[in-house]
Amino acid sequence: MINKKLIAPFYERLSLVLIGILALGFIIVQGKEILDPLMFGFLFAILLLPVSGFFEQKLRMPRSASSFLAIILLVAFVGGVLYR
């Protein structure tokens, strides 16, 4: 029993890669309404992680309270920047 790998020709592999890139681009464009809030949520979560960790470790707050306070501080900061 010989294990023989089938290698597709170059033009077949290239066309599959190009179709995959086009399909991924189409999915990203169509899923923009879902991906935008997810990306902003991920960004805010990463930005608030050190603040929440500070409240948990230094001020000995529970995790839920420290997360809530970090979110309240973010909203207050954004509101203060946008307030004229």
Results as ranks from 00 to 15, higher is better:
22 L>A: 13
35 L>E: 09
60 R>M: 05
59 L>C: 02
49 L>S: 11
60 R>I: 05
42 F>W: 15
33 E>K: 01
11 Y>M: 10
60 R>K: 13
70 A>E: 04
59 L>Y: 05
29 V>Q: 07
48 L>T: 00
77 F>L: 05
36 D>M: 05
60 R>G: 07
12 E>R: 00
58 K>Y: 03
15 S>V: 11
60 R>L: 12
67 S>E: 01
54 F>R: 03
15 S>K: 06
22 L>W: 08
8 A>P: 12
13 R>T: 15
7 I>Q: 08
30 Q>L: 13
20 G>E: 09
34 I>S: 03
77 F>H: 06
50 P>H: 09
43 L>Q: 09
71 I>Y: 09
19 I>R: 05
57 Q>R: 14
7 I>T: 15
20 G>F: 01
58 K>D: 04
12 E>C: 00
41 G>C: 09
46 I>A: 11
18 L>D: 13
17 V>T: 15
73 L>V: 13
37 P>L: 06
40 F>V: 15
47 L>K: 10
12 E>M: 00
12 E>F: 01
60 R>Y: 10
17 V>Q: 11
40 F>D: 15
71 I>V: 08
25 G>C: 12
49 L>V: 05
50 P>E: 13
37 P>Y: 10
54 F>Q: 06
54 F>K: 02
45 A>F: 07
76 A>I: 11
67 S>Y: 01
20 G>V: 09
46 I>V: 08
54 F>P: 02
75 V>S: 06
34 I>P: 05
53 G>K: 01
62 P>Q: 01
42 F>Y: 15
27 I>Q: 04
24 L>A: 13
40 F>Q: 13
17 V>R: 13
23 A>M: 09
6 L>R: 08
55 F>D: 01
21 I>H: 09
37 P>F: 02
65 A>F: 08
25 G>Q: 09
65 A>S: 10
71 I>D: 01
68 F>T: 06
53 G>S: 10
14 L>K: 13
58 K>L: 04
62 P>W: 01
66 S>R: 00
41 G>M: 03
22 L>P: 11
